[in-house]
Nucleic acid binder design. Structure first.
Lengths: 193, 193
DNA sequence: AGCCTAAGCGGAGCCGGGTCCGTTTACCAG
DNA sequence: CTGGTAAACGGACCCGGCTCCGCTTAGGCT
């Protein structure tokens, strides 16, 4: 994979698509018509699909920076809060982020379930969670051996089912259950993995 | 709501749609083309949509009986198992059921989030969970005050993110976390499946 | 400058979802 | 049996997703 640089016209089309898509997503949610985005960016629909083979890949590209910032926030929270407080705070932030982008839930599912390693967004999220979990384990509030991937998927599920703004409190309660689930103490019914 | 009986032709179309849809869903998953179902049932697409305004409503109708049986199973499990064992067992069964129907996840989301009380499937599920939780609380393994609706939504989220057959073990681990989350902090009866 | 070719372009075309409305028909009353 | 009417029908139609492939062009080479 030499990853040769894009031709100038391709590069400019790519950039224009990202800008236009960002506007469209902000205005109408991530479900908005891709044809319209292509038109607004002055390219053919074929070009859009060549650059971004799926809706999810476009959404991911548009929000990549914000996701990175979200992940960076994990370390920051650990600097200003106790591990026991940082984890819930980050989870709330995660859900807030997803809820802020209308229609994000489906995209998140695709990102979390995709086999593609191009979708390295997932790895970033997993790493952020791992950091938080490790700190929690070290501080004693989090049961050791909890798989960051499981927690990420749990958060994903919560977003899926309660990822719209009007479900914000359900999301918080489910986060509460998830936190309970990874906390030290109980040997719950059903055993462990 | 007089709920006047359907005209004979309407009734027969309705029934034929259900039969054909059941076959099609079993064969190709719940995402299959509705136009094809209408054609196979010998009705126009308009008729299908009048009877079942959304894909979800058709899926719900097709599987209503099976859902009822799933809910009945809660009481049965409580008769043959300890509450601490019945809850995990039922949850696994829930996920199995959803995973068996390809594409069920999206439908489940619609059912769980719908405002329609026509979708009383949700109430059945909630009631089944309430029964299990109550038994668990009485037996001491389940923290009191856990909202059955939250547990249902949690299960829904798990199905959403891990509801395909090839994710079965992720689903089980997430169920484990959820069970942990609703368990008493002290110590749950260790019994497992 | 001029050529060549891989890289890129973009829309026609097919498919499925969902709506809308003119047409058909069951069934009831007389 | 006949006529009237609400109920039901069903497909044409519009829209968006996505693919495929013939056309265009950037940009390296001479």
């Amino acid at each position: 994979m030499p990853d040769r640089p894009l031709r100038a016209d391709a590069r400019s089309n790519h950039d224009r698509l990202l800008v236009v898509a960002a506007e469209a997503f902000a205005r109408e949610g991530t479900q908005t018509s891709l044809k319209a985005i292509a038109r607004a960016a002055g390219v053919g629909i074929g070009t859009l699909y060549r650059r971004f083979p799926t809706r999810e890949s476009l959404v991911e590209a548009v929000y990549r920076n914000e996701v990175i910032r979200l992940c960076d926030a994990a370390a920051e929270l650990l600097r200003t809060l106790t591990p026991a407080a940082a984890l819930p705070a980050w989870m709330e932030r995660f859900v807030d982020f997803m809820a802020a982008k209308h229609g994000m839930a489906d995209v998140l599912r695709a990102v979390l379930l995709s086999e593609e390693d191009r979708m390295h967004t997932r790895d970033l999220l997993r790493a952020a969670i791992a950091t938080l979990l490790d700190a929690g384990t070290a501080a004693g509030g989090v049961r050791p051996g909890v798989d960051p991937n499981d927690v990420l998927m749990g958060l994903g599920g919560i977003t899926m089912i309660a990822g719209e703004e009007d479900q914000r409190d359900l999301a918080s309660r489910l986060i509460g259950l998830l936190l309970h689930g990874i906390a030290t103490a109980a040997e719950g019914p059903g055993g462990t993995a």
